[in-house]
């Protein structure tokens, strides 16, 4: 931070020599204003024209409440599953050598790169009742597609890279002497991992969890195919917004949208705080 501040001083002093400043600032602010702030402003402005009663009715209707429950619940499940398996994947990629490791490493990013509608129909094809895996699960009485479990599955998919990519670099940079110190002090392998490695990973794990949760909360494309979109049962919040829009109920859509936006901002604050803390911990 300090270093960056010091570095930028000489250039700033020569502001006249480097004509980029005015142009860069003007362009950045204009582009940001037109493309991001103006549309978001429209949402806020629209929301302010709603009557309080109408707003409350729109955001606390039974359908909305069911959608919040499903969206938050399934996002939480997805993020938890990722928080459980993500560190295992990160550990294996950071610590072991085995054939196909590079491929596995690349595949972790697939949910970032694969269009969500493709992910949606692919997961449905595999996990629906006559799909490759779905038919076996159905024998056990487990319905995945067109059930809340399917929503959680799709949200696990989209959140997968976040935990792995948060934890992996920390694991790679972890001073190997830490684990050796624990061993010399008498700690067995399991205890070393539990008492030394996991606490060091925890901030990154928490950040990855929050990122995964935030991404899942807003996800739309991969869910709408596998969920079956049954109101009160498998309807997520983003879908409810789309439905309201299709019914030309812009006020209803806006009201629920504001709630979603508020949740996203709250999460963004939490994530920023977590990242700042994790960074401080690692810089030391």
């Amino acid at each position: 931070m300090m270093e960056a501040a010091l570095r930028s001083v000489p250039l700033r002093r020569r502001g006249g020599v480097l004509p980029g400043y005015g142009l860069a600032l003007g362009f950045t602010v204009l582009y940001l204003g037109l493309l991001v702030l103006l549309p978001l402003g429209a949402l806020v402005l629209k929301a302010s024209t709603l009557s309080w009663e109408g707003f409350v009715a729109a955001v606390t209707g039974p359908r909305a409440l069911a959608a919040y429950r499903l969206s938050f619940g399934a996002s939480l499940v997805g993020a938890l599953v990722n928080a459980l398996f993500g560190p295992v994947v990160a550990w294996v990629l950071a610590r072991y050598d085995f054939p196909g490791k590079a491929l596995l490493d690349a595949l972790v990013d697939l949910p970032f790169a694969l269009p969500t509608s493709v992910a949606g129909i692919a997961l449905t094809a595999v996990y629906s009742q006559n799909g490759w895996l779905g038919q076996h699960l159905a024998k056990w009485g487990l319905q995945v597609a067109f059930a809340p479990a399917g929503v959680a599955l799709a949200l696990t998919f989209v959140g997968l890279p976040f935990v792995v990519r948060s934890v992996q670099p920390v694991l790679q940079d972890l001073d190997p002497h830490l684990e050796e110190a624990a061993a010399v002090l008498g700690a067995g392998r399991l205890r070393t991992v539990a008492w030394v490695v996991l606490p060091a990973l925890f901030p990154a794990l928490l950040t990855g969890f929050a990122l995964s949760f935030a991404r899942a909360l807003g996800e739309y494309g991969s869910v709408v195919f596998i969920s079956g979109n049954m109101p009160l049962r498998t309807e997520i919040v983003p879908l409810l917004i789309v439905t309201r829009l299709e019914q030309y109920d812009e006020a209803g859509a806006t009201a629920i949208g504001v709630v979603m936006l508020g949740a996203s901002f709250l999460l963004l604050l939490v994530i920023n705080a977590l990242q700042a803390r994790a960074l401080r911990g690692r810089k030391r």
Binding site: H177, A183, P199
Partner: peptide, 21 residues
């Protein structure tokens, strides 16, 4: 013998302190 049972104390070059403790 594994290091856990040797009864030695080791001071590492970069300290290797447990930052979370």
């Amino acid at each position: 013998m594994p290091p856990q049972r040797r009864g030695v104390g080791f001071v590492f070059q970069g300290y290797a302190l447990f930052e979370h403790l």
